[in-house]
Amino acid sequence: EHITKHPLQNRWALWFFKNDKSKTWQDNLQLVTKFDTVEDFWALYSHIQLASKLTSGCDYSLFKDGIEPMWEDNWNKCGGRWLITLAKQQRHTELDRFWLETLLCLIGEMFSDYSDDVCGAVINIRTKGDKIAIWTREAENQDAVIHIGRIYKEHLGLSSKVVIGYQAHADTATKSGSLMKNKFVV
């Protein structure tokens, strides 16, 4: 029998961030590995810690090969993110499921033609509440952004009463907290 791995549309890079205040932000960001098949994705996924087991201040990022998980990257700077903010108790109930669904949406290219607008996804483990976001490349591509948001919300199994927001990185970089404005909501 002829056995081959199942190729993904894109090669993806997993990054790990661990907050060490004695180092610069960039030094704290490490490339873990890259993969481009379904089988290699699962080999990696089963080898690493679940997000809920990471310590506060840590992030995982999964981005298309060639895109760094930071606003400043050329692929990201005009883009933004669909942000899921979780309540503290959701770390034990939904965080890992949400993150896995996010990863599957990315590697499976589940946003049809608009998948090209996806840059990657980030999960932030924080004491005050964890966050998951899908980053897209162009905040002005309204059709793409809205489509991605709707499909994403569906895959997370969020009820229609839950509203999620999309913020442009340019706005996030200059504002903070309650001043952060949603460019779109679904």
């Binding site: 056995i3 791995k5 549309q9 699962w42 499976g108 290219e109 589940m110 049809s112």
Partner: peptide
């Protein structure tokens, strides 16, 4: 064409032994 995979298809591989 584009390599698009659905959720169920991807999950089917989660616990498969790795192939060479």
């Amino acid at each position: 064409g584009k390599k698009q995979y659905g959720r169920e298809f991807l999950l089917d591989f989660q616990f498969m032994p790795a192939c060479v």
